[in-house]
Design a protein around this nucleic acid. Structure first.
Lengths: 218, 218
DNA sequence: CTCATGTATTAGGTTAGACTAATTTTGTAT
DNA sequence: ATACAAAATTAGTCTAACCTAATACATGAG
């Protein structure tokens, strides 16, 4: 079934929001697309009818399997085109986003594959974000905890410091590979953070600690 | 001023029609875009208001200077993308048109230039059509007279047979470089043509003659 | 518990770009 | 000159995707 430019953008937005928040609210979508909530609800109804998402006000929007397939396809094309623009056309990585926003909507059965091959099957786009393939977003421990903003979250993918004291400290925090960390607050003066580990009560951790935790955020 | 996808397609269609017919009628545009004449007239009004064309029913649609600039820009991008798709992504030349129809509408100030450089500043697209540059369509003697259909026309750009008898024959016909030839009729059984040279009275010419005249049709 | 505030929803309107179904104009053949 | 067909035009409709303004609901602070 053919998707419109606009439908594709909604699906993409829902995908991205769902990676940073546990609920994809109407308002979050409206903010992200800079559309009016009244417009958003219309589109959500339409996407629901097409079985690309489920939606109700308490659960928020959730991509169905086919909705996620579409979203990942668009994100894949976006990131491949960004690689093209930077590697082949020598754009600065900061300029390419708005162009890729247009290019990602070009429809052709073979295009993504051919572009991917031409570019040498890159794993990351110029911003370091992984490029989806085979309908899945590759999972990497790609972000230091210290890079997260307040209210963002991720799963522990690896640690950079493997010294015994550090690992003991982590154990004491009840933190291991796969633990979910949510950033509740950041203290500006020393970059320490207040975090929740697997939803438990808040803990304060130093910047030395947050620099050494690598998270899976996609 | 920003142009919509649809406006750009109308301007492109008007440009192409104007190269093959002496009047760009409403009906011709409607046929070319496979739109309803009622839709076309609305758009022509809009393009007229934006001063991209002039239009009245007797003259038909005529691109203004700025309208032609837009049309040539779109055609340039279309043809550059076709080169990219064939040369870099190894598409067959027959498959690329519908993809280029989408790519031609990507807006970015630097994109055409960068793509052009990346492709090595090609002069022709994979179909042999010239790629506009500097706001102008390059002029080449690119079509044999024998390839024209009835009612099409072109200007003589060069001749393939430069033997004295042939050139004498041309002189006798009052035909030289720059002469305008219009095809009035084609005879199926021996491919001979009835043509008007610079609007004078019809002459019948053989396929041997029409195969050796190269015309400028763009 | 209640009320203020934020979030969700409804109702109705706008614009671009298409459509169908008349109607008018134009050009052409007899 | 007439009459017919083709082309142009008008009037009114439709859909997608947006909007504003008003209303309903939910939730957390006092």
């Amino acid at each position: 079934m053919k998707k419109t430019y606009s439908e594709e953008n909604y699906l993409k937005a829902i995908y991205h929001i769902s990676k940073n928040e546990n609920k994809v609210s109407l308002k979050a979508i409206a903010d992200s697309l800079e559309n009016n909530p009244a417009s958003v609800i219309d589109m959500l109804r339409k996407l629901k009818e097409k079985q690309l998402i489920t939606y109700d006000k308490t659960q928020g929007a959730i991509l169905t399997a086919s909705g996620e397939t579409v979203a990942l396809d668009i994100i894949r094309k976006h990131r491949l085109w960004e690689v093209f623009l930077v590697e082949k056309l020598h754009y600065d990585w900061a300029e390419v986003h708005p162009i890729a926003e247009q290019l990602e909507h070009i429809h052709d059965d073979q295009l993504a594959k051919r572009l991917d091959d031409f570019l040498g099957n890159p794993a990351f786009d110029p911003h370091g974000d992984p490029i989806p393939a085979n309908g899945k977003m590759p999972v990497y421990a790609n972000k230091r905890l210290s890079e997260l903003e307040i209210s963002q979250s991720g799963k522990v993918g690896s640690v950079r410091d493997t010294s015994t004291p550090f690992l003991k400290y982590l154990k004491q925090l009840n933190l291991g590979l796969g633990s979910k960390i949510e950033v509740l607050d950041k203290l500006d003066f020393d970059q320490s953070m207040i975090i929740a580990i697997d939803g438990s009560e808040p803990r304060t951790v130093s910047s030395k600690m947050t620099d050494n935790i690598l998270l899976i955020t996609e």
